[in-house]
Amino acid sequence: MSTRPCPCGLPDPYAECCGRYHSGAAAAPTAEALMRSRYSAFVQGDTAYLLRTWHPRTRPARLGLDPGMRWTGLEILGTSDGSAFHSVGTVTFRASFRGGSLHERSRFERVDGAWVYLDGEFLED
């Protein structure tokens, strides 16, 4: 089992953190955990996971990732709802990449009990 750190920024090894969501061994229990796992999926180039965790209403038919993109860090700036007791939630974050950053407020919903990404709003820094 890999002991490399998880790209999402939490201290656990990838396999024990977001890797278990990517493999399907577990489902993200909160909107923030799903946000972190989706960031890690972008780092890993895991388009299947990204599409699987996208709301059916807003999911694109396919997703092309830039193989040259180098993500360098994730900072969670705020959350609203999104716990086991909610059906919706938002996560505001900054994802850094070589040469810049992406600042977004993402909305999440539960579909059949599982958290999925609904959409996001880009924010100015």
Rank of each mutant, 00 (worst) to 15 (best):
S2M: 12
S2R: 12
S2W: 06
R4W: 09
P7V: 03
P7E: 02
C8P: 05
C8R: 09
G9A: 06
L10H: 11
P11W: 03
P13K: 10
P13S: 14
Y14E: 02
Y14K: 11
E16V: 12
C18G: 01
G19Y: 02
S23A: 15
G24H: 03
G24P: 04
A25D: 14
A25K: 14
A25C: 08
A25F: 06
A26V: 08
A26K: 14
A28D: 01
A28E: 02
A28W: 00
P29M: 08
T30G: 10
E32Y: 05
E32A: 11
E32S: 08
L34P: 08
R36D: 04
R38L: 00
R38S: 01
A41M: 01
F42K: 06
Q44P: 00
G45T: 00
G45Q: 01
D46R: 08
D46A: 09
T47E: 09
A48F: 07
Y49E: 00
L50R: 07
L50E: 01
L50F: 01
L51D: 02
R59C: 12
R59W: 09
P60E: 12
A61W: 07
R62P: 07
D66T: 05
P67M: 03
G68F: 08
M69N: 11
R70I: 10
R70K: 14
T72A: 02
G73L: 07
L74G: 00
L74Q: 00
E75T: 14
I76Y: 05
G78K: 06
G78V: 03
G78Y: 09
T79P: 03
S80W: 13
G82Y: 02
G82P: 02
S83R: 12
A84K: 14
A84I: 14
F85C: 13
H86E: 15
H86G: 14
S87H: 13
S87T: 15
V88P: 06
T90V: 10
V91N: 06
V91L: 05
T92L: 07
F93L: 13
R94W: 04
R94T: 11
S96K: 12
S96T: 15
S96Y: 08
S96I: 03
F97Q: 04
F97Y: 15
G99I: 05
H103E: 07
H103S: 06
E104H: 09
R105G: 06
R105N: 12
R107L: 13
E109C: 13
V111D: 01
D112P: 03
D112E: 13
G113I: 07
W115Q: 06
W115C: 06
V116N: 03
Y117D: 02
L118Q: 09
L118S: 12
F122S: 15
L123W: 11
L123K: 12
E124P: 14
